[in-house]
Design a binder for these strands. Structure first.
Lengths: 166, 166
DNA sequence: AACAACGTTTGAAAAAAATCAAACGATAAA
DNA sequence: TTTATCGTTTGATTTTTTTCAAACGTTGTT
């Protein structure tokens, strides 16, 4: 194995662990890493081959990744029997948005408790108020971040475009 | 079962699912919900009894929750044989800090790839730059959020304190 | 010193999740 | 129309995670 290949394998491994740490399937991380690495779209077969897995799980994982908008299907005119996949350009933003949904759920839980809990339960009521405050503020900052990111991304893209025009 | 009990059970369930959605053990969510609910600290026995689990797993989960600073041990003078636990006052902030560590890891991975990847791999290099930008900006906003939250918390606490002084 | 009440550790059992291989259905190619 | 090539679904199998019951060690109590 060349040095390059070893690094590549290690990175794929890292993505797997990172995805697992977020409570997702390792294989999801592998596929994502593979597609980030690949300059051109990959077919399902190539993914299964490169990861040494069988088609079943890869097919399912690919669907979940598409649902989460982390990868996308692309048309390859030369072979329209096969499905080709590439990384979604906004993969990180989209992953973040998925996470935001979890946070919203926390806010929902807090709201729900707040309305259900008798007001004389001072301790509990205080804790829930805390929780609600916290996650609402968190959502606010999440949105701030997204807005600023989109700004920055646009700036970066303009730079890239002007380079291309040269 | 009274209405109150049913709500309580449902909330505990919700916490379990929420924790699972974040890739953690359901039982962690149950214990956390239980302690949020309880105005006074609970012993290990009470936790196991209320959740209908045996001591082994509860003991382990409690340790993990302490490691993550989501709950803490407290001294109950009346019975110093048993360990008593209560919710960590800054549980949400601490949970968030734990999450921040995962984000930092993403940044680390991106930095690592960036330094390892040959500069002529334009596509890959571009994606990694993106990733690095993204997570660095994200860390910045995470810190913003924490700072603002601590501010707000202090303000809220002052209000509570002045009430108490009356 | 012996006992009792704890929390923790451990090996086995149960449950859940991931994985595979094969069958299947759909669609393009022959 | 038949055949070949896909991706998906499915049931069985393997692996991993969770859970339990019992053994263990520690520390306070008698």
């Amino acid at each position: 194995m060349t040095h390059e290949e070893r690094v590549r394998k290690e990175i794929i491994q890292n993505f797997g662990e990172a995805y697992k740490a977020f409570g997702l399937n390792k294989l999801m991380g592998y596929v994502v890493a593979l597609l980030i690495y690949s300059p051109k779209p990959l077919s399902l077969d190539e993914i299964t081959r490169q990861l040494g897995r069988s088609k079943g799980p890869v097919s399912q994982i690919v669907r979940r990744l598409r649902d989460r908008k982390l990868i996308r299907k692309v048309w390859e005119p030369e072979n329209n029997r096969k499905d080709y996949y590439e990384i979604e350009p906004e993969i990180f933003e989209n992953a973040f948005r998925n996470n935001l949904e979890l946070i919203k759920n926390n806010t929902r839980i807090a709201s729900y408790i707040k309305e259900k809990v008798p007001a004389d339960e001072k301790v509990l009521a205080g804790r829930i108020d805390d929780m609600l405050h916290f996650y609402k503020l968190m959502e606010k900052h999440y949105r701030n971040f997204l807005a600023e990111w989109i700004d920055e991304r646009n700036r970066l893209m303009q730079k890239t475009d002007s380079k291309k025009r040269k």
